[in-house]
Design a protein around this nucleic acid. Structure first.
Ligand code: MN
Ligand code: MN
Ligand code: MN
Ligand code: MN
Lengths: 220, 220
DNA sequence: AATTAGTTTTAGACAAAACTAAATAATTGT
DNA sequence: ACAATTATTTAGTTTTGTCTAAAACTAATT
């Protein structure tokens, strides 16, 4: 598999991760910052290799084979992110671009030994699950703050947006994975949410609330 | 710089490392397992970018700029090798192929932090020096066993051939970097050498003697 | 049913890095 | 000195992944 093929497969996986509808050519092009015509060419090639199921004008979906390829690249990406943060002291907003390159290194032994060296982590620095060798991972029952009712309490376990800008915002506002939050009030008007933390109570905008995942501790 | 350009630059560096004569097209082709015509094309391109000095039919030499590029790739290659052996428990004969890929990862921050994480090593697992950020490294005064007279004593500090085959041979014969050897006898007929080690005396063939470096402790 | 806007595919071109085959330059042996 | 050999370059293709422009399709609106 070429680097380019791997990036396409991974993009298609992510675009169909939360809805099982077929992925549009334009969506792939936008995500990968290429042109739709380039996507068509590549999708044909991936289809030849049975990595995707593709019918003209009908969009594309990963085959089971393609899904496993995607998960193996995601596994590598996330393990490298853990390495960069835990061992090399990168901050969580810097690791994505580097992992984007490291995920393409081809060596099964390398990734096995890296996994062991890191103590077989289950999640990456952004709270995303790390698939095992066979592509199996536990999809945790986490919910966006914006989807929860007043009174919910939980541990912050992940981010929906893992752009450097958002992660830096969280750092600046002393919000980190592992923190426990309780939803105190939801403002009807603008969707902003008041949450209580160990160090007091803060107001977060709707945009923030739709990008932070909680794992519920006590439903009330 | 593309991956391919980087590999050419590195190859040219190594081919002119021990004699400052210009490097032949054929030599590069053989080393890189490509054809001479491909080398000519690439060398023209590198010349355009002032990474090499090239005149038709006259072979090629790295410019100062090219030399620095070569050393930065070699720095990355060797730091990754240290990482693989020291942190991930690879054996020294397995690391080269993986480092061949890792050396192309583009991130200055990554290599700085890796260097720090490893404790600023001065040599790689094969005894080869690791250049610093500015391409500076200490060329140690090591000599091949085959070049030394009877009575010389020194510490084994490097290998000339770092192929997996040779390194495995050394492991099997319990020869490792850091061992102290004394040259007891040189056989005129076949160039084989008898060396004494802590655990006794062994005979090594000329081929082995031309591939092991000693750092002399006591000239006698 | 026809028009239109938006999406997707086709066709043709390009750059990078390789190849083969043929031409040319350099070197070597007699 | 010159023919033979070897080394190197040129010319013309190939493959991969991209692009632009034009054509074809789909879906929504009249
Ligand atoms: Mn990538
Ligand atoms: Mn991540
Ligand atoms: Mn390489
Ligand atoms: Mn080495």
């Amino acid at each position: 598999m070429t680097l380019s093929e791997e990036d396409y497969i991974k993009t298609i996986y992510h675009l169909s991760e939360f809805n099982s509808k077929s992925v549009a050519t334009n969506a792939i092009a936008e995500q990968m910052k290429t042109k739709p015509s380039s996507v068509t060419d590549m999708v044909k090639k991936l289809s030849e290799k049975s990595l995707v199921n593709y019918k003209k004008y009908q969009g594309v979906l990963l085959s089971e084979k393609g899904r496993l390829v995607a998960l193996s690249i995601i596994r590598k990406h996330r393990l490298w992110e853990v390495f960069l943060v835990d061992k090399l002291n990168f901050s969580w907003d810097e690791v994505h671009v580097v992992a984007e390159q490291l995920e393409h290194i081809k060596s099964d032994a390398l990734i096995d030994k890296l996994d062991a060296h890191l103590g077989y982590p289950k999640v990456d620095p952004h709270g995303d699950p790390i698939p095992n060798k066979d592509g199996v991972f536990t999809k945790s029952v986490k919910k966006l703050i914006s989807e929860l009712p007043v009174g919910s309490q939980g541990v912050c376990v992940g981010v929906n947006d893992s752009s450097a800008a958002f992660l830096k915002f969280l750092d600046k506002n002393k919000i980190a994975l592992g923190d426990t939050f309780k939803i105190m009030e939801i403002e009807e008007f603008d969707g902003s949410v008041t949450i209580s933390t160990r160090s007091g109570s803060i107001r977060i905008s709707k945009q923030i609330a739709t990008n932070l995942f909680l794992e519920i501790v006590d439903e009330e």
